[in-house]
Design a protein around this nucleic acid. Sequence first.
DNA 1: GCGATATTGCTCTTCCGAATAGCAAAATTT
DNA 2: AAATTTTGCTATTCGGAAGAGCAATATCGC
Lengths: 140, 140
Amino acid sequence: MPQPPDDPLGQLPGYALRRAAQAMMAELSQRLAPLDLRISDASVLMLVAARRDMTSSEIGKALDIQRANMVPLLNRLEGAGLIRREPIDRKSQAIVLSDAGLARLEQVRAITTRFEDDLLARIPAQHRPHFVPALQALLD
Amino acid sequence: MPQPPDDPLGQLPGYALRRAAQAMMAELSQRLAPLDLRISDASVLMLVAARRDMTSSEIGKALDIQRANMVPLLNRLEGAGLIRREPIDRKSQAIVLSDAGLARLEQVRAITTRFEDDLLARIPAQHRPHFVPALQALLD
DNA sequence: GCGATATTGCTCTTCCGAATAGCAAAATTT
DNA sequence: AAATTTTGCTATTCGGAAGAGCAATATCGC
């Protein structure tokens, strides 16, 4: 990621945010590739483990993924045997982790906690505690 | 952008970074839409104004856009009459702003400086000075 | 209870950004 | 002069995200 001194864009918060997110996601994707999971797959696994029996729409709301786009995502996870769809009533279904899903989740956790540590480590100590709060302030 | 208290992901720097960047870009896109420009279009205009006579590949390197993807982008800008391609030698061409491009750039500047101000304003004052430095640390 | 309304899960389609492979012409290196 | 690199491009693919629309079902107001 070159940062030429005469780059007039590098100082702009919006531009820096975009580039940083881009670089971060490229690296996380690579680290998750051995598990055969995309970033959104991993997010879903983590979420359904933390809050059991969520419906597809609830997951979508929490992760800001549209209903329509949840379908292929969950199909993929179900096809890989990581989740199951269990009927709640005749309309809704709960998404639950299978045993294989739980096992995969453990691998995901290992990779992501390592990843998040590495990420934070690259931020100079004096800026570090401000990083997540600043980002969260942008999400209200 | 909901941030439920029992969201196990919201605290993760990587996840927060992704979501913040997503939200930011969605909003910037909207603000640029009246100018009929995408975010990358605007970046290119700003860059070619600051460093004149750059070639397509140089722009790509600076903005981290691949050669192949620069082509339709520049075609679009050229089609809109905002830039011209001027031959340097028989292989390379300089990208230069047209008069219309310069005028459009002024509008871009108005929108982006306003946007960047608004963005920073949403970050609490004690975190604000740490924001861009932290992001830049992730880009090395 | 019933009718209007909202929600759920889905299909199909489109768009954008990004990536890859390949290519011809021209420049640069040695 | 030959080998290598660079430039600009075509063509294709992929992933994430968005939109419109739909049938079945659940929920709310009365």
